[in-house]
Every structure is written in C-alpha cells, then in structure tokens.
Amino acid sequence: MFERAVAGERRALGRLLTLVERGGPAGDELAEIAHPRAGHCHVVGLTGAPGAGKSTITGRLAAAASAARADDTPGVGVVAIDPSSPITGGAILGDRIRMDEVIDREGTFVRSMATRGSSGGLALAVPGAIRVLDAVAYDPVIIETVGVGQVEVDIAGTADTTVVVVTPGWGDAVQANKAGLLEVADIFVVNKAERPGASDARRDLELMLDLGAHPVEGVPHWRAPILMTTATDGTGIDELWNEVGKHRTWLQETGELENRRQSRDRFEMLGRVDELLGAVGRARAESDHGVRLLGEVKERSMSPAAAASELLNDLLQ
C-alpha cells in the first residue's frame, strides 16, 4: 500500500493515514517503512484562536505553495486538527469547507484529524502523519490547529516554521500571549487586516515582541515578522509564503533546522516512552503484586507514589 501511495494513489495515502491514527503494530510497521524516506519536507504549523480565519489562510498558503512546486512532486500536505467531544469521542471536522474553495485540488492533500480525547494520542499521530506525507514527497506539510489547549499549541510549536494568526480586536494579541503562542511564533499574521483595529493589533504584537526579545550572544536570533492579510481575497498571502521561505533558509543557514528537528524527534520519542511505560504500569497494576500494593495504599500504610515506584522498581534502577 505504501508503494501505491508513493505512486500517487490518494486512496492508498488516505488509508495509510488511518493506520497512523489508529497506532498499534500496523502503525509501527508503517513508521519503519516511512521513516528512512522522510526528513525532507518543511513543516509549517499554523495556529490561532477560533474564528481567526485559519482554514482560509491554510488553504491560500497551500495554493501558493502548490503553485511554486516542481512538476514531479505531488504537492502540499495539510493536516487540519479539530477537537473531539470529550464526552462522546465524536467530532465534527469542518476545516475542509473553506479550504476547498481556495486550494488547488490536484496539488493538495488535505486530511482532517480529530484529537480523539487523549492528548498523547494526538502527539503521536501528528508526527506519524507528517512522516508518511513526507515519505511520499509532499512538501511542505502544513499543520493547522486551534491555538487553545497545550497539546495543540505544542504541535504547532514544534513545526519548523510556526505561524500564529490573530485578528484585530481588543486583546487578541494579549490572549495569544497568555496562551503561550508568542514564544512559539516564527511569523505573526494579523488576518482580517481590512478591519478597524488591525494596526493596533500589529502595534500590540510589536510591543510584546520588544518586551520579550532577549537575543543571546552566539545564539541565532530570528525576530518574528508581522504580516497583514485578508485571507478571504488572498491579500498578503504571497508575502506570507515568501516569509515562510525566508525562515526556512534562515533555519538551514543557522543550523537551527537540525536543532528543531532533533527536539521534535525527542518530543515524539518521549511521547512514545510515556505510552510504553504507561502500558507496562497499567498491566502491572492489574497483577497480583499491583492489587496487593493498591491494598496497602487503601490501608494507608503506603502512599500512591511509593506504590508506583515499587511497581516499576526494576525499570527505575
């Protein structure tokens, strides 16, 4: 199936991404095949508050990237993430609607993904999806997430280039700051720039960047540019695409790209460690030993933390 996806069969690629999302042995096997062939694509993370126009910007950015692609490449990959209902596990994934209007359908592969409750699951599924899209030569891959919730911010923030979208209006920039988006942003976009208050939003961002900027000697510094866009009619999108390119070059020239990718690999590996250790721990908790320890916790002769340490004693040496 992987070879069919490489040959350009979208159905096969769609199926592979399902395997990635489901995880488990099939997902691991796929990662084994895909990982050696990946490592080429530029990953762009795009995040911001609900209603900021992220889907339209993502679609427009994908269209610009697709127009610039080489003839023998399949184009741009997009992974659009929406939250699952924490109660029912279901989700309504609606990002395609506004994207579809503006993308070049031939040169773009869009996959909607639900957070599926566990944050750990998403943290594994997204790098897995990037790896597969990368391995079948999609470049760039754009990850769109809602910029609320730590995991979503982390996912966008671990991209090669992170774009944070805000809109004019009192406090949007302040909210972005609070959400921790300011630190992860490589590029800011003030969307709906035709509206009153756009220049205020820009000024607020400049101010916060000035306050937060502490360039360290010897460490390459990139000051996030602030771009003004009107995604609905495409104003400012070419500039955004240019800026992504500049940031890509800067990453390569300064070696920062390697740093980021290493931290992303580390993030994924540690996520997997959490998952594996958790699985071992849960299995042991069901064992006779685990049940006995839980009994001691109940009797208050042992704390939960001490019981957990003893349960994993051999692994913690």
């Binding site: 979208r10 769609g14 199926r15 699952s84 596990g89 279901g90 395609r96 609607i97 909607s112």
Partner: peptide
C-alpha cells in the same frame, strides 16, 4: 458526533467530484 462518529462536514453545494476527493483523502 454525539454518538461518537467523526463527521467530515462538507456542507452545501458540493459536487460528486468534491465528495470523492474528500472521501479518498479522509478514508
């Protein structure tokens, strides 16, 4: 959604081609 399904919502004014396109990519 409330029954646990992941709904890929395409909404109004779709064509057979746009739906097929989405069905393939979304599996």
């Amino acid at each position: 959604r409330d029954a646990g399904v992941e709904v890929i919502y395409l909404g109004l004014r779709q064509t057979a081609a746009t739906i097929i396109n989405a069905a393939e990519q979304e599996d």
